[in-house]
């Protein structure tokens, strides 16, 4: 795997073998983090957060610090005036002298791609509007790999808001590239995945998809349950929201018939879609998932910097 100097804007920027290589490196870092603690000595990560996202920023900063590198950056809504001002191109041409690798979070979709066109150092997309958040997808994949081994022949259910959920779109598209995947899409009819995405999955990746509005339909056979939040404002009226919301809340009862090896993930923060008593179930792995985010970001930073690895 040689990712030196590469940008990561969209998960599709990585070939399947490169994805697997990164996941292997992420697992190695998780198992023996101390081995890597000087890997990025002398390197600087620039965090350009044009909108605040504390968890993503801290995860990147923690990753760089654990590699022995340093961080600088900003996380300031005021910097990100949406009005016409200095082009991002100019900003990047200045800032990319200050760091060896940049991570950008921006409310405008496509902003990290624009940054990558002008940067001389690797740019990592830390989330651009409702578009892409590739390191979240990598985090999900690493959690999967850690708990279920090789990513193949899995039955995966996505539950909740599948229409607007960027996390879901990116993960489902990326998982589709792995062999033998089957998907159950559990949502109210109003919040099903966009039709263009469904067409793309069916025709481009030839995966098996079942759409349903009942988690009960698939809970016994799935290997991964990916929960997302249903926002009240997505509904046309309060009545409909109240009627539907309980169907998409995970409780211990609903989880009971599932496999022992099932993995329950959620990109966090959750509101009420997973009841608190589910947390004690060994199948609930969403806090572990947040932890894995640091290790995959460590792997990614090392890979795009092309630093020498101790093993």
């Amino acid at each position: 795997m040689d990712l030196k100097g590469r940008h990561l804007i969209d998960p599709r920027d990585l070939r399947l073998d490169e994805l697997n290589g990164l996941l292997d490196l992420g697992l190695a870092m998780y198992e023996k983090p101390a081995v890597f603690d000087q890997t990025c000595r002398g390197k600087i990560l620039g965090t350009l957060f044009y909108e605040p996202s504390t968890r993503t920023r801290l995860s990147f900063e923690s990753a760089m610090l654990r590699l022995g590198g340093r961080v600088l950056g900003f996380s300031d809504a005021a910097t990100s005036s949406a009005s016409k001002g200095e082009s991002l191109a100019d900003t990047i041409r200045v800032l990319d002298d200050y760091a060896d690798v940049l991570v950008m979070r921006h409310p405008r979709e496509g902003a990290p791609k624009l940054a990558a066109e002008y940067a001389t150092v690797p740019v990592i997309n830390g989330g651009d509007g409702g578009h892409q958040h590739p390191t979240q997808t990598l985090t999900d994949l690493l959690t999967l790999k850690k708990h279920l081994g090789e990513i193949q022949n899995l039955k995966v259910a996505f539950c909740g808001d599948l229409l607007f959920g960027r996390t879901v779109h990116s993960l489902i598209k990326t998982l589709s590239r792995f062999p033998g995947m089957e998907f159950f899409l559990v949502s109210p009819p109003e919040l099903r995945i966009p039709s263009h995405l469904k067409e793309e999955l069916l025709y481009e990746y030839d995966v098996k998809i079942t759409e349903t509005s009942q988690l009960e339909d698939c809970i016994e056979e799935i290997d991964l349950l990916y929960m997302t939040r249903i926002q009240k404002e997505r509904f046309f009226n309060e009545e409909e929201y109240i009627k539907l919301k309980d169907s998409f809340i995970l409780s211990r009862d609903k989880l009971a018939p599932a496999k022992e090896s099932l993995l329950v993930l959620h990109p966090l923060p959750r509101v009420n879609e997973i009841q608190y008593d589910v947390d004690e179930d060994p199948r609930a792995r969403y806090f572990d998932q947040a932890k894995m985010g640091v290790y995959i970001r460590m792997a990614l930073i090392c890979a795009v910097l092309g630093v020498e690895l101790p093993c």
């Binding site: 949406a82 009005s83 016409k84 082009s87 991002l88 191109a89 100019d90 921006h106 409310p107 405008r108 979709e109 496509g110 902003a111 791609k113 624009l114 002008y118 651009d128 509007g129 409702g130 578009h131 263009h196 067409e199």
Partner: peptide, 29 residues
């Protein structure tokens, strides 16, 4: 929400999507 709406340096290149409709995909968003 596309960056091309606010940044003069981002001129989108559109690619025809082969779906039978006349739809073009923005290279940025």
């Amino acid at each position: 929400r596309c960056i091309t709406g606010v940044d003069d340096c981002a001129v989108p290149e559109f690619t025809l999507v082969p779906n039978g409709k006349i739809q073009y995909k923005c290279s940025y968003c």
